[in-house]
């Protein structure tokens, strides 16, 4: 018996891989959301944050590759397990089959997963590569000049006056087409549903869940998913309703330009 063999070769091992990679991805999406919520603050915040991340160089690539590996393993394990389970169910389907108590979220994991995958591809193309809207969308953004120093843990990582990519403007422009914002809303909705089962489920798979506190866990998971959904809705929502626009950004910007 070897550890790698057990993890990749057994059904429980693969479930553990799904749980661990899922946990990493949950950490990422929450961190990502928290970072992005800086869009509601002075443009310096989001732009400085983005510039800081870009400046990490090799560390950024380690994180990116790590995330890609997690996504890859998550999808691989899901695919293998799904195929095995389909095979296990056998050739003859039930004439009638009723669900007893499985949650909606758990029954559509595969479908929410597909949409989330499609969304990730689109999202990367949209904001990371800048190729999803017009080809000038990301490339033609005017540079942004930092009004203040941007600090991380008390250290100045992006000094005032640095010219950086205007991510703040990109986000607002990016969400202005209603179709794009609509797809985004749908995708984060389904992602939240995916997390609703996934966050609960990973505790079971890693053996940390039991009936003494599973109800509390469920409540925490539901609240976390609602909060996650609300945070993600807030950004395109604010853009669509005009609460967040280039004008509002400009209004807050002068304060920085004095």
């Amino acid at each position: 018996m070897n550890l790698v063999g057990n993890l990749f070769g057994s059904s429980i091992g693969r479930k553990i891989l799904m749980a661990v990679t899922g946990l990493a991805l949950i950490g990422f999406v929450i961190g990502h959301l928290v970072g992005n919520l800086q869009v509601f603050s002075h443009p310096d915040k989001l732009n400085g944050y983005a510039h800081f991340l870009q400046s990490l160089g090799p560390a950024l690539w380690v994180a990116r590759i790590g995330l890609l590996v997690c996504v890859g393993i998550h999808i691989w394990a899901a695919t293998v397990l799904t195929l095995e389970s389909k095979r296990a169910r056998g050739g003859q389907a039930y004439g009638v089959k009723t669900w007893i108590q499985a949650t909606l979220a758990s029954r559509y994991m595969r479908w929410t997963g597909y949409v989330v995958l499609a969304f990730i591809v689109y999202h990367l193309a949209h904001f990371t590569l800048g190729t999803a809207q017009s080809d000038t969308f990301k490339a033609s953004l005017p540079a942004y000049k930092m009004a203040h120093d941007y600090h991380v843990l008390g250290f100045t990582v992006v000094p005032a006056g640095t010219e950086v990519l205007d991510v703040h403007r990109m986000v607002i422009l990016g969400f202005q087409p209603p179709l794009v914002a609509g797809f985004y809303l749908l995708a984060v909705g389904l992602l939240s549903l995916h997390l609703l089962h996934g966050m609960d489920s990973l505790f079971q798979t890693l053996g940390w869940r039991n009936s003494r506190w599973s109800q509390s866990l469920r409540t925490v998971v539901i609240l976390a998913c609602l909060a996650y959904f609300a945070g993600n809705v807030a950004i395109p929502g604010a853009v669509l309703t005009g609460k967040l626009s280039l004008e509002s950004a400009a209004k807050s910007a002068p304060a920085a330009h004095h």
């Binding site: 059904s11 389970s85 489920s201 798979t205």
Partner: peptide, 24 residues
């Protein structure tokens, strides 16, 4: 046999209502 997707249909269908805590 297939794998577990933590839906707990098993324990709900179990004539002895054995808990899925044992799966965890």
């Amino acid at each position: 046999f297939g794998s577990c997707t933590n839906q707990y249909e098993c324990s709900a269908a179990c004539p002895k209502l054995i808990s899925h805590d044992f799966i965890a």
